[in-house]
Amino acid sequence: MNKTFVNIENISKFYGEIKALKNISFSVGEGELFGLIGPDGGGKTSLIRILTTLLKPTEGRAEINGMDIVKDFKKLRKIIGYMPGRFSLYEDLTVEENLKFFATIFNTTIKENYHLIEDIYSQIEPFKNRRAGKLSGGMKQKLALSCALIHKPEILFLDEPTTGIDAVSRVELWEMLKKLKDQNLTIIVSTPYMDEANLCDRVAFMQKGEIMEINPPETIIQEFNEPLYSVKGDDFYHLLLELRKMEITKTAFPFGDSIHLTAYNNINPSELNAMIEERMRIKTETQKISANIEDCFMAKMINTE
């Protein structure tokens, strides 16, 4: 890992009785693309808001590039780029006016930093005179990202940038993040989509205000140590119910066009398939597979409960 850029120590956040964050600690290196992965209510937004100086932690402290997020908030606000969870630009201003506005309040100009956003902004530039409210979801996202980057931030926070947008725009957004990372920008991004974890350098699994695991996605997958099988067959729903009844089955979950089954002990896939076929009296297809991030997340959820 490069030099530490963000350092978080024992941060907690309480809203009255509700504990949104419980004793979170981790650090992020310079130029790292770091993912906060987890469902809604996991504490992702609270954590990002604390790091962007929008909220004060109830307990604990954090530093970004040596600056304290509470004491030095004024200095930090000059180096932070932030894209909130929902579209937060002025819908009654045009594309260009929005960008110009955000450039100016950060004491810079579009011209000065155009090279930073060129890749992204050039895609929406043909519509620069259109009001932001009239843009499609994917274009809004590109504009928001341009606005968050125009002042050449040293660190970029994105809160669920891919929630509610379609698969194509999601792919494009991650392509852009990859490019930004290559320019040595530190990026912290949150997402409920597990498959996006693969695109990060490291990810933190967040659930109910706690971090279940932090590691590079490859490590997480390697550390998955339960025997995992994919089962395919007709009559999907009954197959699923029957698989759960088998003694060897620890968990069985639908996964795309197959069912992922974790077993209590290692078994030859053809042997397992024979067991299933005998039970179901239909033809099935069973393979031993390696886990993906979502398998890992679910296993973590079940094992921590």
Binding site: G38, P39, D40, G42, T163, G164, P192, M194, Q207, F236, Y237, L240, F253, P254, E294, F297, M298, M301, I302
Partner: peptide, 18 residues
């Protein structure tokens, strides 16, 4: 199923299957 965890999401789909 927007925004729910992967297990709940699957439980939800099982309701749909049923």
């Amino acid at each position: 199923t927007s925004g729910v965890d992967p297990i709940t999401r699957r439980q939800f789909w099982e309701m749909i299957y049923k």
